[in-house]
């Protein structure tokens, strides 16, 4: 290996690391607030990538049908819970996602600028987060984290199958948001890499500010640190759960759009990406955001260098990393 290859691998590793960093933050957030190990996080990535590319190519994305199905499902459950007296609120809650689905279906025909497609994609996927929480987790929010994990895995399988049905088996790759390359210390750097790193920095910074300064952010932190205390202070666990899922979906959607400019995404690509986010998140015990972030870049770099030295064992090496991490954590705990 020479310096040029090393620089190239580092660049690749940092770009992937940034994506894993975003995912790890979403996963830690969802776990802290709801105790759910959110395996389906990866599906937001593939859904977003497939939606964005469909919009760019002028097709109605499968997300539209999926979102309508989720709205119908959540509405049905709400009616079962609340009776017909809840009809008004069910309709009110459904307006935004249905309207958005309609907008997406129409806008696909007009060939809008990339930025608009991007916003529509993020909004579509973001709508799914709270709906999924309502359908799958709300009723069992008090169950043990083991049960929540098993349900999350089942949820992942359902999302995977629905992804295949609504988007089809073909892989997609979006044009990079900015197709250019600059030279840094004599090494060509893809503009997309810079876009990914900058987006990651902006998102992480934004989340930090929101959680430190805003009312909702503080409420979420309270719900994560002391759920019962937060509930006694009038913070609804349900609302906290839905908000966590909303943030996770937004992060997943942005990651999906970013990564679709760098690699081909299939309906099932998200799972492995999300799992790498978990490997990073575990470094911080699914509790520390900074450690999760550091872990994410570590995973990205390890993967990138492993693909150079032992390409056939890239995935094995990355996932086997969890064993030393857990060993370290269990020794830290024993002390």
């Amino acid at each position: 290996m020479n310096a040029f290859v090393a620089a190239y691998l580092t660049q690749d590793g940092l770009a992937n690391g940034a994506i894993y960093c975003l995912l790890a933050i979403a996963l830690v957030l969802v776990f802290a607030v709801t105790r759910i190990i959110f395996i389906p996080q990866g599906e937001f990535i593939s859904y977003a990538a497939l939606t964005y590319v469909a919009l760019r190519e002028g097709h109605t994305p499968g997300t539209v049908g999926l979102l309508l199905a989720l709205v119908a499902g959540a509405g049905f459950i709400d009616l079962l819970r609340e009776g017909f007296g809840g009809l008004v609120s069910v309709v009110r809650r459904s307006l935004a996602p249905v309207g958005l689905a309609g907008l997406a279906a129409v806008s696909a025909r007009f060939g809008l600028p990339a930025l608009v497609d991007l916003l529509i994609t993020v909004a579509l996927v973001a709508c799914m987060g709270p709906l999924l929480y309502r359908i799958v987790y709300r009723r069992i929010a008090q169950a043990s984290s083991l049960v929540l994990l098993i349900v999350a895995v089942a949820h992942h399988l359902v999302m995977l199958g629905l992804g295949l049905y609504f988007f089809g088996p073909e892989g997609v790759r979006a044009a990079p948001l900015i197709d250019a390359s600059v030279s840094l210390f004599g090494v060509p750097v893809q503009a997309q890499t810079i876009v990914i790193l900058l987006s990651c920095a902006v998102l992480v910074g934004g989340l930090y500010v929101i959680s430190e300064r805003s009312f909702y952010g503080k409420a979420m932190r309270a719900a994560a640190i002391n759920p019962i205390g937060a509930r006694l202070m009038g913070i609804s666990a349900e609302l906290a759960g839905e908000t966590a899922f909303l943030v996770a979906a937004v992060i997943g959607a942005i990651s999906g759009i970013l990564i679709s400019g760098a690699t081909t995404i299939y309906y099932d690509s998200g799972f492995l990406l999300g799992l790498k986010g978990f490997v990073a998140g575990i470094l911080g015990g699914l509790a520390s955001f900074p450690l999760a972030g550091i872990g994410a870049f570590g995973v990205g770099l390890l993967e990138s260098f492993a693909s150079f030295y032992a390409s056939g064992f890239k995935e094995t090496i990355v996932f086997a990393l969890i064993i030393p991490i857990l060993l370290w954590r269990s020794m830290a705990k024993a002390r």
Binding site: I37, I39, S145, L146, L149, V153, L272, L275, F278, V279, I282, E315, T316, V318, F319, A320, I322, I323, L326, R329, S330, K333, A334
Partner: peptide, 19 residues
């Protein structure tokens, strides 16, 4: 994994199974 909470085992087995 024995000293850690149960969900670490589950996550570790997902990673192990994939690896």
């Amino acid at each position: 994994m024995v000293r850690l909470s149960g969900h670490y085992l589950s996550l570790a087995t997902i990673a192990f199974g994939t690896a």
